Amino acid sequence: MRKILLALIGLSMFAGLLAGCGGGQQTSAAPGVSAPQQTKAAQQAEEKAPAATNDVKSLLAKTKDIKTLSFTMVTLVDGKEIGKAKMWQKEPKFKMEFTDGAEKGIMLMDQAQKVAYMYLPSENMAMKIDMTQAESKAKKSPLEYDDELTDDSKYKVLGDETIRGEDCKVIEVQEKDGTAKLWLSKKSGLPLRAEAKSATETSTVDFLDYKTDNIADSEFELPSGVQVMDMNQITAGMPKGQ
């Protein structure tokens, strides 16, 4: 699945990963531990590392045959919920439904056509948006986090945790502006939670209610009779700033 979904929420995570520290650097032995002992301990750690790496890759492999996916996404900043949305994806099309108070909004996206529609059912109106520029800034869908985990040097496995009663493998990635963590379900290989920490805040996305049932193509289409406004034409007619 391609980069579209989380840009709409504004969560910046698992982008700009840093490569791991280069090898070949010598370190002094810890107090009370001889150099041979330290070398042996390092060798044992290296022997365990491939097992953890293979475990992660085997989890990611479970998602490869998923063609359609629907789920609920809840975004929190410092523990406070700031957004909740229902998602549908059937590459190259995506749909996001969200509410702002009593107002419901629906975003329909077609990656192949590089176009999106922001649809307001209460107004029977939609705004057409050119996604050519936005696509390069878009973040991850649940099926795309494996893009960041293909290089073993760019992440480490922290261990196992349980999220909402489901066993997960916890992975940490060091980013330019902080650390990011991902909780992969051992059952499905899909992320149940993603977290990004910066110097000022912690952003979390919980992925709930996954379904892989087939999704009708009509789910990604505007209803007939909706008035469509082209945002490119509207902005082209606006006076340019001095």
Rank of each mutant, 00 (worst) to 15 (best):
Phe94Ser: 08
Leu76Ser: 15
Ala199Met: 12
Leu192Met: 15
Val115Arg: 09
Lys240Leu: 02
Thr150Ala: 13
Ser188Asn: 11
Met118Ile: 06
Gln43Phe: 00
Pro31Glu: 10
Ala180Trp: 05
Gly23Val: 06
Met109Thr: 13
Phe207Gln: 06
Lys57Cys: 04
Asp100Cys: 03
Ser185Phe: 05
Ile171His: 12
Lys84Pro: 07
Pro36His: 00
Asp151Trp: 06
Gly105Cys: 04
Lys67Trp: 02
Asn54Lys: 14
Ala116Met: 13
Ala112Gln: 14
Gln89Ala: 09
Glu81Phe: 01
Glu221Met: 12
Leu5Asn: 13
Ala134Trp: 03
Gln233Leu: 10
Leu143Lys: 01
Ser12Ile: 14
Lys57Val: 03
Met231Cys: 01
Lys197Met: 14
Phe14Val: 13
Ala15Pro: 07
Lys156His: 08
Asp167Ala: 15
Ser28Phe: 09
Glu166Asn: 09
Lys169His: 02
Asp55Tyr: 12
Leu182Ser: 01
Leu143Phe: 08
Val74Asn: 14
Glu103Phe: 05
Pro191Met: 12
Asp78Thr: 04
Gly101Cys: 08
Gln25Glu: 15
Ala29His: 08
Ala7Phe: 07
Ile215Thr: 13
Val157Ser: 04
Glu103Ser: 09
Glu91Thr: 10
Lys80Met: 08
Ser218Leu: 00
Gly165Ala: 06
Gln242Asp: 03
Thr235Glu: 09
Lys48Glu: 11
Pro36Met: 06
Phe94Glu: 12
Ser153Cys: 05
Asn232Trp: 06
Ile106Met: 04
Met125Glu: 14
Ala7Leu: 11
Leu143Trp: 02
Val170Ile: 14
Glu135Arg: 02
Tyr210Phe: 14
Tyr210Ile: 04
Lys95Leu: 08
Pro50Val: 09
Lys156Cys: 02
Lys240Tyr: 00
Gly20Gln: 12
Gly32Cys: 09
Gln89Phe: 03
Trp88Pro: 06
Thr72Arg: 06
Ser70Arg: 10
Glu144Lys: 13
Ala112His: 01
Trp88Gln: 14
Leu6Phe: 07
Ala236Arg: 15
Gln43Val: 01
Pro223Cys: 07
Val173Cys: 13
Met1Glu: 05
Gln25His: 15
Met73Cys: 05
Glu201Gly: 02
Lys86Gly: 02
Trp88Asn: 07
Thr39His: 03
Val56Gly: 03
Ile129Trp: 09
Ser218Ala: 11
Gly241Met: 11
Ala49Val: 00
Leu69Trp: 00
Tyr119Gln: 04
Ala42Thr: 10
Ser70Ala: 09
Lys181Ala: 02
Asp65Pro: 07
Gly237Cys: 05
